[in-house]
Design a protein around this nucleic acid. Structure first.
Length: 577
DNA sequence: GCCGTTTTCGGCCCGACTGTTTTCAGTCG
C-alpha cells in the first residue's frame, strides 16, 4: 500500500475512534500520522523500521501498523474497528455541521448509518426529538445533504492526476511503443474531474487487457478493442481509448474537449466546408483528409492559432485564436517566488531553513514565510511579540542561505469585524502581509463583504489570502460580493491570491479572470505546510492559465527587487513605513 | 498513541460560533 492509502486508513481510524469517544489525544496521534505519511516525498514502504520510528509522532505502535499496511495492504486493527460500525457511517461525517458526537447519537438512537437514512429521518422530523437537536438543526442537515449530493462522483484534480499518472506509468511499462496521455477535464486543468480520460496512440493489442488488470481496478465496466472503462478503488472511473497514429491529433483534440469548445470548432469547420471528428479533419465534398496527426495542424487548417487546453471552454478563445489575440499564458517556470508558506512556528511540519531549502530546490528565488496570527489558536498562531521574533529568525536564516531570499511575512487573520488580528505597527515591520478569513464563515453577504473591504483598506495589507474560503467538494465559498471586493482591491493595489492547495484553488479561474479584467494583480502561492508542498504551484499556475493570465498579471513572476517595489507598501504615497 | 522524562506516568495548542439550552454541547479551524 502506498503513502496515500496508509494516510487514508489512519484518517478513517481517527474518525472511527472519535465516534467511539476515544481519548482525543489518541485520535490526534492517528490524524497526525496520516498527515505525516500523506505528505512525505519518499515512499514510506522504502524506509527502514528505524527510519519510520524516527519520524516525529510515529512511535512503536504506529510504525508497526505502517509496516503491516505497506507489507500486506491490510490492518487487523482497522478491520476490527470497522466491525463495530457500518462502513457507510463515515459518509455522515463529511456533512457540514455533523461531527463525531452527532454521528454517534444518530446511529445509537435512530440506527442511521447512511446518507439516505439521514435524509429520510430528517424529512420525517424524527431527529428533532433527539437531545441537542431541533427543527432548525433538521433543516441544516437537509441543506448539508443537498450540498453534499452535488459533489459526489467528482474528484480533486490533484487526486485525479495522481491516479492518472499511476495508471499511465503502469501501461507504459509494458507498451513502450505507445503514447499514452491524459485528456478530458484533467488535461484542461479543471478544478475537479468526474472521471479520468486516457488516450493511447498506436496499435498495441495487449493494451486493453493490461488496462483492465491494473492492480487498482475494482470493477471492469466495459472492455473492447478500442475502448475500455474501469472503476478504480476510491470510486474513480477511468476510460481508455486507443486510436491509430494518423488520428492522434484529432483524437487528442476531440477527447480533450470541452464539449462546448468542440461544438464551436466543428461549427467553424463546417463553415469552411470541412468536417471534424475524432479521426481527423476531412473535406465534406469528397471526404479527403486535410489534417489529423497533430492538434496544431488541425487548428492551423481552420485558420486558428493553437489553443492551449486550459482555454478550451468556448469562452472567447476561438475568436481570439482566429484574431491572433490569444494570451501568452503564464507557465510554472515564470514564477520566481512563492508568497505563502508555514513552518513549525505555527501549523507547518518543517522549520524555516528546511522549507527554504525545499523551495530553492524547486527553482524558486524567493519565499515568503507567512505563519498564522494569534486568532488561530489551534495552529499556535503568533502574537505581536512572537511574530517579530520569528521575523528576526527568518531574516537570519535568509542571510546565511545561498540561492534563495526569505521574506518575513505573516498570514494575518481578518477578525469577524474586519479588523486585523495583529497591531498595524507590528505588521508594518514585516515584508509581506496576507490577510485571510479563518472564522465566522456563516456571516451574511453584506457583513462578510464589509469585513474584507475593511481589511483591504488597511495600508499594511498586501494580499488577500484564499479570498472566498471555499474547500472544493467539502465547503461552499462564504457569501461575498466578489466584484465589490475586486473593485476595492484594484483601487487599493492589493493583490488577490490564487491558493494552489488542490482543495482550495481560490481564487477560482472564473474569479481570477474577473480580477484581471479589473486590473487587480494576482499572486500564485502554495500555502505549503511541508517541503513537498512547493510542488503544488503547478495547480495554481493551471488556474491562472484558465483565467487567461499572462506573466505580467502575476506579481511573483517578477524578480525579487521588482516584486518588492510593486508592493503597495513600497509604492509612492503608501502610508505604511 | 507519542513523548520525555523529575524514568513508567502525566501532559499533550484553544477560542468563537451556533443551536440548543438557561449554562451547555458540539462543530470548526
Amino acid at each position: 500500500m502506498d503513502n496515500l492509502g496508509i494516510a487514508r486508513v489512519f484518517t478513517d481510524i481517527g474518525d472511527l475512534l472519535e465516534i467511539k469517544d476515544a481519548n482525543p489525544f489518541k485520535v490526534r496521534a492517528y490524524r497526525n500520522a496520516a498527515d505525516i505519511v500523506g505528505h512525505m516525498a519518499e515512499r514510506i514502504a522504502d524506509l527502514t523500521d528505524a527510519e519510520v520510528r524516527a519520524l516525529p509522532g510515529i512511535g512503536k505502535d504506529l510504525s508497526a501498523k505502517i509496516r503491516e499496511l505497506s507489507d500486506t495492504g491490510a490492518l487487523a486493527y482497522y478491520d476490527e474497528l470497522r466491525q463495530e460500525f457500518p462502513p457507510t457511517i463515515l459518509d455522515l461525517l463529511r456533512l457540514q455541521g455533523v461531527g463525531p458526537k452527532t454521528v454517534a447519537v444518530l446511529y445509537a438512537e435512530r440506527g442511521i448509518a447512511t446518507l439516505d437514512d439521514l435524509e429520510t429521518a430528517a424529512t420525517e422530523g424524527r431527529l428533532r426529538t433527539l437531545k441537542g437537536m431541533g427543527p432548525k438543526k433538521e433543516r441544516l442537515l437537509l441543506r448539508a445533504l443537498a450540498e453534499h449530493r452535488t459533489r459526489v462522483g467528482r474528484h480533486l484534480i490533484g487526486h485525479a492526476d495522481d491516479v492518472a499518472t499511476r495508471v499511465i506509468d503502469y501501461l507504459r511499462a509494458d507498451a513502450t511503443d505507445t503514447t499514452i496521455v491524459a485528456v478530458g477535464s484533467l488535461r484542461r486543468g479543471c478544478e475537479t474531474c468526474g472521471d479520468i480520460d486516457l488516450l493511447a496512440i498506436g496499435t498495441n493489442d495487449q493494451l486493453m487487457s493490461r488496462f483492465t488488470s491494473f492492480p487498482g481496478v475494482e470493477r471492469v465496466l466495459g472492455q473492447g478493442p478500442t475502448k475500455s472503462s474501469v472503476l478504480l478503488q476510491g470510486d474513480v472511473q477511468a476510460d481508455l481509448r486507443l486510436v491509430p497514429d494518423e488520428s492522434a491529433g484529432a483524437a487528442t483534440q476531440y477527447f480533450t474537449g470541452s464539449k462546448a469548445h468542440n461544438i464551436a470548432v466543428r461549427d467553424l469547420a463546417l463553415q469552411r466546408g470541412l468536417r471534424l471528428n475524432e479521426y481527423g479533419l476531412f473535406r465534406v465534398a469528397d471526404d479527403h483528409p486535410v489534417a489529423g496527426a497533430s492538434e496544431a495542424e488541425i487548428y492551423a487548417a481552420l485558420g486558428l492559432a493553437y489553443v492551449p487546453p486550459e482555454l478550451r471552454e468556448n469562452r472567447g478563445e476561438i475568436r481570439a485564436a482566429a484574431d491572433g489575440a490569444l494570451p501568452r499564458l503564464i507557465e510554472r517556470t515564470d514564477l520566481k517566488g512563492d508568497l505563502h508558506s508555514h513552518t513549525t512556528a505555527t501549523d507547518g511540519h518543517a522549520d524555516v531553513e528546511t522549507m527554504a531549502r525545499a523551495a530553492r530546490d524547486t527553482g524558486l528565488e524567493y519565499l515568503a514565510i507567512t505563519d498564522h496570527s494569534q486568532a488561530l489558536a489551534m495552529a499556535n498562531g503568533l502574537d505581536e511579540h512572537r511574530a517579530l521574533a520569528h521575523a528576526r529568525h527568518i531574516r537570519e536564516v535568509s542571510a546565511r542561505l545561498d540561492g534563495i531570499t526569505l521574506l518575513a511575512g505573516i498570514e494575518c487573520d481578518i477578525r469577524p469585524d474586519g479588523t486585523l488580528d495583529l497591531a498595524e505597527d507590528c505588521l508594518a515591520e514585516l515584508d509581506l502581509v496576507i490577510a485571510s478569513v479563518h472564522s465566522a464563515f456563516g456571516q451574511a453577504e453584506a457583513q462578510m463583504t464589509d469585513r474584507i473591504l475593511r481589511a483591504i483598506a488597511s495600508p499594511v495589507v498586501d494580499v488577500v489570502g484564499h479570498p472566498t474560503g471555499r474547500l472544493l467538494l467539502r465547503r461552499d465559498p462564504y457569501k461575498l460580493d466578489i466584484e465589490q471586493v475586486l473593485d476595492a482591491a484594484a483601487r487599493a493595489g492589493v493583490a488577490m491570491e490564487i491558493n494552489s492547495q488542490v482543495d482550495r484553488l481560490d481564487l477560482s479561474d472564473i474569479h481570477a479572470r474577473l480580477a484581471r479584467a479589473r486590473g487587480v494583480k494576482l499572486v500564485i502561492s502554495t500555502d505549503a505546510h511541508a517541503p513537498a508542498g512547493f510542488d503544488l504551484l503547478r495547480w495554481g499556475v493551471m488556474v491562472a492559465r484558465r483565467a487567461w493570465a499572462e506573466p505580467d498579471d502575476v506579481l511573483n513572476t517578477r524578480p525579487l527587487e521588482a516584486f518588492q517595489a510593486s508592493l503597495r507598501r513600497h509604492r509612492k504615497g503608501a502610508s505604511a513605513t
